[in-house]
Write a protein that binds this DNA or RNA. Structure first.
Lengths: 293, 293
DNA sequence: TAAAAATACTCCATAGGTATTTTAT
DNA sequence: ATAAAATACCTATGGAGTATTTTTA
């Protein structure tokens, strides 16, 4: 048999008071009950912890050593309970955040993560870059608590909670030497014969459906890029044109010009995706904060 | 209410198995009992630790954190029990050893302490130099487990256990230029008019009673020394002569000669003193070792 | 339908309470 | 004589067992 917390509490209290009567009072039990506890503990351990000479109670050497350990265990138990309770309120624990390369622009991540860390410093933050599709997988697998993705209005799986963080205007990126680069505004219809660069073969990341609706034709995607920076590099190299979110104009490689289009393409929402059935209270805090920070 | 070890064990086992049935089997209880344990724990903490969806058991975030703490607490409890039991066998804990300056000679301390440490490395050793009278006080106060003192046969308080460690032959220390210094053996009767140096006014440390019995007169103690080295320094300075234990001839200051006396003085026992009622099992091991090492 | 956890209940071990005894000062 | 722990005995809480129900994959 192994000791219970109750035995440790009893022993530590007696060791502190060195008096069974007072210790029992502090423990809100009666003295004989305490004597039994200590006796039971000593029997379990097979060692005498307290030397009782009717008038004086003293620790034995095993008792002295066991006292240190028992006190530490009791303190750790208290802190473990507190930790679990704070985790239940979302004030402690771990939050794993995913983002796609595209959402790394515009400083929204540092703004949200910074504000969250300031309000709840005991939540450990793990931040991983992941392609949007992998983020959805990771969310379902429980490896991710929340993911930031660029999303057109269509894609909304039912088990995900969507929170729109911000919306980005779409602009046209084209080589600086392109004839249209000097225009302030370019009509979409003028782009029918252009070659487009996108992330995926379907162009879904950049809202191909919205494009067709606004322009009346499907853009011809001829090149694919791995990430936004590579996309703009390809544009700058003259391989084609692309519609990109306005925040990407910052830090663009040389040789790329940006112009507005007409009619304007729908704004691109950046959404935070999270599982509705998550048990991580820190996630609720984080998602709640998105609207307020 | 606060959790008991039983709750931690139940929770850790379920968290490891992620299956109530198997966990219950490992805990040698029945599944409904385990369900109750976990439910009770969650109620106490006020947080859900395990997410049960009939077919799949998974840890919540509070559960993940509580698991780490609970595992650590269980490991520490095991080691605390083991520590107390080893202390009960004298294999762990602390042993406080006292010695008087006189007993520091002859390497008996390093021999005993070294051998003890090699057999029981988990016993922390505290070694303090103390005057013999203070050692007896410290022993009674529980501040010392064992004390090494030079003792003539007379002084043996009843609550102390005496173990003779070794016995020292007595020799005469006298200034090198003293007329008797060239003798191989000096008759005690030739010392009647000499001035003696001792530790205490009564000369008890050096066996004045034995001296009187052997020589037929009480030596005239004219100077007192704080410790053996100072005593020999005074002898070398020509302030008087002294009877000293043979081990002190090693490392003596210059100007001191040593000669045997006739009849020989009784040998001086070095004893280890310890309280008979000590609760420190390491002490029993140590005292037992004295005879064997 | 089957596997697994929860619920309902019963029983007994044991923690804790009351009264008393023992023992050392 | 008194203070304090131990012992004896009783009571009742709650932990564990058996049988059954509920739930979802």
């Amino acid at each position: 048999m192994t000791p219970e917390i109750r035995h440790l509490r009893a022993f530590v209290t007696v060791a502190e008071e060195l008096h069974f009567g007072r210790a029992a009072a502090r423990l809100n039990i009666v003295q004989p009950a305490l004597s039994m506890q200590i006796k039971g503990l000593e029997t379990m351990l097979g060692v005498s912890l307290l030397h009782r000479t009717r008038r004086v109670v003293a620790l034995t050497e095993p008792g002295r050593l066991f006292l240190e350990e028992a006190s530490r265990i009791l303190r750790q138990l208290d802190s473990a309970v507190d930790l679990a309770q704070r985790a239940g309120r979302g004030e402690a624990g771990r939050l794993t955040i995913g983002y796609s390369a595209a959402t790394a622009h515009s400083g929204l991540l540092s703004r949200l993560v910074g504000a969250f860390h300031r309000t709840t410093p005991d939540v450990e933050l793990l931040i991983r870059e992941l392609h949007p599709a992998l983020q959805r997988e990771a969310l379902l697998a429980g490896e991710l608590d929340v993911g930031f993705v660029v999303a057109d209005a269509a894609s909304s799986p039912p088990e995900f909670e969507r929170t729109v963080v911000e919306t980005w205007q779409m602009v046209l990126a084209l080589p600086a030497e392109h004839p249209l680069a000097t225009h302030a505004v370019v009509p979409l219809s003028a782009l029918r014969d252009e070659r487009f660069i996108s992330y995926s073969a379907l162009g879904e990341d950049l809202g191909v459906d919205a494009f067709r609706a606004a322009a009346g034709f499907v853009p011809a995607v001829e090149h694919l890029a791995e990430n936004p920076m590579m996309l703009l590099t390809l544009v700058g190299a003259g391989l084609g044109i692309a519609t990109v979110p306005a925040p990407m104009t910052r830090g663009a490689p040389p040789g790329v010009a940006f112009v507005a289009v007409e009619p304007a393409l729908p704004e691109l929402p950046i959404v935070a995706l999270a599982r509705c059935d998550s048990t991580n209270a820190a996630l609720a805090r984080f998602v709640h904060g998105i609207s307020n920070w």
